[in-house]
Amino acid sequence: MNAAAASPGRRISTFFYQRPTLALILLLAPPLLWLGVVYLGSLFSLVVQSFFSLDGFTGQVVRRFTLATYRDLFTPANLDIVIRTASMAAAVTVAAAVAAFPVAYYMARYASDRIKALLYLSILLPLWSSYLVRVYSWKLILAKEGIINWGLAQLRLDGALEWMLGLPVIGGPSLSVSSLGMFVVFLYVWLPYMILPIEAALERVPTSFIEASGDLGARPRETFRLVILPLAFPGVIAGSIFTFSLTLGDFIVPYVLGNSALFIGQAVLAHQGTAGNIPLAAAFTVVPMAIMAVYLIGAKKAGAFDAL
């Protein structure tokens, strides 16, 4: 045996080489403790809190099991918040999937390495600046005096914008204070989270699959529907988990661009902060989780993960 073989570094390497399970445990323990104890623990505490109630007279939390808070959640005013938020999240998710797919497809199938790097950069670059800064800059872009209004006026399309803003639910006094404006900004901030997973999924579809489908008589449309889309679907689902849950939980975009109609995130903030109604805030927080759970079970049932 030579001298190097006996050095402490080598001995440690050999020690772990012969005990792969121990090495694995040591590597996994810190992140698992972090996720398991801190994250799941607080989640559990959150769910437990949602089954407590607030004593309306004293303003104290009553630590006893009750469904009263959930009864509160399903009052028309609160249900309105849930429906508004979920509809926005659904609209943003569908729009993001439709907008992301062509970009992802081009990146995965046609782009040269250079173009692909450029596209990656341009998708990720906005994420380098603060989310708040980007949302506030959209406020300016969408304002009555902003570039969009100006541009549409130059194209003599300001009438169309006025008409859209006049519509119930999606409209408002200006783009910068309307559901329509919120939708535009949500779509912008979450689009990268949709493009990247779809691109990754499409990257794993070999060209020969597409050739085989055409070879067997399928027109491009049929190939898309029968081969490309099913194989990319896990990516679409992964992307939609991001866009859907990020929109469900967001309170900044509605705060900056919205009106008095609250979103779930704002309701949570209001109830746990100013109102001190921790149980109702917790119950509101359970809603997005429940929606996501139902969504994922539905996606699984629909065979979205069959290609994984």
Partner: peptide, 20 residues
């Protein structure tokens, strides 16, 4: 002509069987 207009079929080197 595109592949789907031709009366030929191919056995691919990597088989290209649809995994789903």
């Amino acid at each position: 002509l595109p592949p789907y207009e031709r009366d030929v079929n191919t056995v691919f080197q990597d088989y290209a069987l649809f995994p789903h």
